[in-house]
Design a protein around this nucleic acid. Structure first.
Lengths: 252, 252
DNA sequence: TATAAAGGATGACGTAACGTAAAGGTCAAT
DNA sequence: ATTGACCTTTACGTTACGTCATCCTTTATA
């Protein structure tokens, strides 16, 4: 069977078959004088095996190793691949969530332009928290806790809100001082992290250091946080805050 | 700000920044006499934008176009990307299902070796059908229908089972004849597809041509089916059967 | 039988987004 | 002056082929 015949039969291109030959994944059992590749039944069988694993997103190199190993464990391999693909899917799930919530936020922003500032800000806090942290929080503590937490924020009195603003202002000041020192593990840096924790407690129903660190890490990747902190405090403030929280949660 | 400083601040490598320069995605606003790249605040802002979209799995080329287009629609873009990622996830879901069920089958095979052949074969039919078709079928018709269908197969009487075997035998014979003619759209090929449909009706609760075609397509990619049909009927039988079913469902 | 059309072969470049040397300037400090 | 840190460009490697370009056989047709 010549190369194009096998190509038609199997649905892959001739180029692919030549490539498989090149990388020693599937070599035709006969090559004639004129250089033509001849494939026989055992080659076809091997190709079928190859395509099976390729469908499952195995790399060709892995497939080669698999098929050449006389006593490999199909089940083991499949389970490993399963875990790998699961990770990929989880990653995609997160992306989808993020995009979805970003879209919602964008739509929300437009609708909200005409509402009063105070309410808007509180809602925005809720939404940003949800966007950055909703998923994990919900997983860990369940719906009720999360809703309770948001309820806490939404139901805050104006005085409490003022207190929160004050605390944030204090946080900014200490952060600026800490940055001038430059050390993210200094006592003053720890104080900053502590302030941040207290500030968080206005909106979070329950504190854990893992959650705290998680939020800090997300700050870095969210351009809104970066521009917010960097504008209020100074360039690099977000990164410094993150490092401080990182140190703080590490020693606690 | 020199290249390594920005690298540290942003978390990407210096190589990446040079690459972004190279592909005109992010050019430092100043390049000094000595060739050193100098990044300023606007560069940092742009990088943040870039990383935001990169996180969402956009291609760099797309990001470039986005950021250079002065009046692009963020929401539109995000929605498009959402759809794209959804497709990827569905694809992964399918792979995961397939692997999972293959594992189950492998484990099942071992446990089943000591059972009677008759029972084994029927269970295998159920499992193979489930493996190849379960997901889609469940989506379209819901759990009940599917379970009813499998119940049908499992509760088949021995006579019915015999009839099914007879029908399959007939199918093989006609398929062999049709292949000798070679035309996958001939009257006899259509007859083969019809027989296959009737054979299916033993195990399927409800027939649709979409489902029929879908199953045929899966035959091609399943080495067990290929070796089964090709052994029983002759080399290329699976492909021929697929083409015939394809033609059959197209004209119906 | 000459020739043209199929079909085969071997390079070799392109792809996406960098990682990783290699080889060599520049700058601050010793 | 030398060392070491940091900068530059050049270029190959990665994955699984698609897509030419160029050339050689085999088969079909005039």
């Amino acid at each position: 069977m010549l190369i194009n015949e096998l190509a038609k039969l199997s649905g892959v291109s001739a180029r692919t078959l030549r490539y498989y030959d090149e990388i020693d994944l599937l070599k035709p059992s006969v090559v004639e004088q004129n250089g033509y590749r001849k494939y026989n039944q055992s080659d076809i069988d091997r190709l079928q095996q190859i395509l099976f694993y390729r469908e499952l997103d195995f790399k060709l190199e892995e497939i080669k190793n698999l098929l050449n190993d006389p006593n490999f464990e199909v089940k083991e391999v499949l389970k490993k691949q399963y875990g790998l693909l699961q990770k990929k899917r989880n990653y995609l799930d997160n992306l989808l969530e993020t995009i979805n919530q970003t879209i919602n936020m964008l739509e929300g922003d437009i609708k909200m332009t005409n509402e009063e500032k105070f309410k808007v800000f509180k809602n925005k806090l809720v939404e940003e928290n949800e966007q950055n942290y909703g998923q994990e929080i919900r997983k860990k503590y369940g719906e009720e806790q999360v809703e309770a937490s948001y309820g806490k924020l939404k139901n805050m009195s104006e005085e409490q809100y003022e207190a929160m603003q004050q605390l944030e202002k204090q946080l900014f000041e200490r952060l600026k001082e800490a940055m001038e020192q430059g050390d993210t593990t200094s006592a003053i840096a720890m104080e900053v992290a502590e302030l941040h924790k207290r500030w968080l407690s206005f909106s979070w129903a329950k504190y854990t250091k893992e959650a705290h660190l998680g939020l800090a890490q997300m700050y870095i990747y969210d351009e809104r946080f970066i521009s917010y902190y960097d504008q209020q405090v100074g360039k690099g403030a977000t990164l410094f805050l993150h490092d401080a929280i990182s140190a703080y949660t590490a020693i606690k």
